[in-house]
């Protein structure tokens, strides 16, 4: 089934080497084109493409709807994937990232307010893009530097034990699905 785009297609980056292109539609009907190398960074999208049997011939005629991600986050994600599509895989990625300094380009991309960043993390988690998850993690981790527990609670929106208890009580007081 093909979905008619309601807004102009956002071409994030001109792609080289006549690659295979795919179309992705965000929850708010923005349409994005993304190259095969870039889309492979998202395990969710690539699994979907594989399962749908999309090929170079029919890919652009069959846009992929992603209802859990809005256009703003999808734009960031597509930009990120296009930027890093030719990156070499690090053999010991976790250890590497521990010492890793976020490149300036990525720091700029992820310089968004806290709520947007958290929303982007949820979208990234849904699309299963490990590298972007690690980068977001680094940004969020950097926020914690030299912060007191009180400051951390505010920055991250962490509830206190008392708030946790209150939330639990209200959940247990509220009637269940059958009540």
């Amino acid at each position: 089934m093909s979905v008619e785009p309601e807004v102009p297609i956002v071409q994030v980056e001109e792609v080289r080497e006549n690659p295979v292109l795919y179309k992705i539609i965000s929850s708010d009907n923005h349409v994005f084109t993304i190259s095969e190398h870039a889309v492979k960074l998202s395990k969710t999208l690539w699994d979907l493409i594989t399962n749908l049997g999309l090929t170079a011939e029919n890919a652009l005629d069959n846009p992929i709807p992603v209802e859990n991600v809005n256009g703003k986050n999808m734009e960031t994600i597509v930009q990120f994937c296009e930027r890093h599509k030719y990156d070499e895989e690090e053999p010991e990625y976790t250890n590497y990232i521990r010492e890793f300094v976020l490149p300036e380009w990525d720091r700029q991309l992820l310089s968004i307010d806290n709520e947007e960043l958290f929303q982007l993390i949820l979208a990234t988690n849904y699309l299963d893009i490990q590298k972007l998850m690690d980068y977001c993690c680094r940004v969020i981790g950097d926020m914690a530097k030299d912060k007191t527990p009180e400051e951390l609670r505010i920055i991250y929106g962490i509830p206190t034990d008392a708030e946790d208890d209150a939330l639990e009580r209200s959940a247990s007081d509220s009637p269940g699905p059958s009540g």
Partner: peptide, 20 residues
């Protein structure tokens, strides 16, 4: 989403702690 922190996936939080 309120509160935001609690909606983050646990593996992300663990990854985050690992980097602190």
């Amino acid at each position: 989403l309120i509160p935001i922190w609690e909606n983050l996936p646990i593996h992300f939080k663990q990854n985050l702690v690992d980097k602190l």
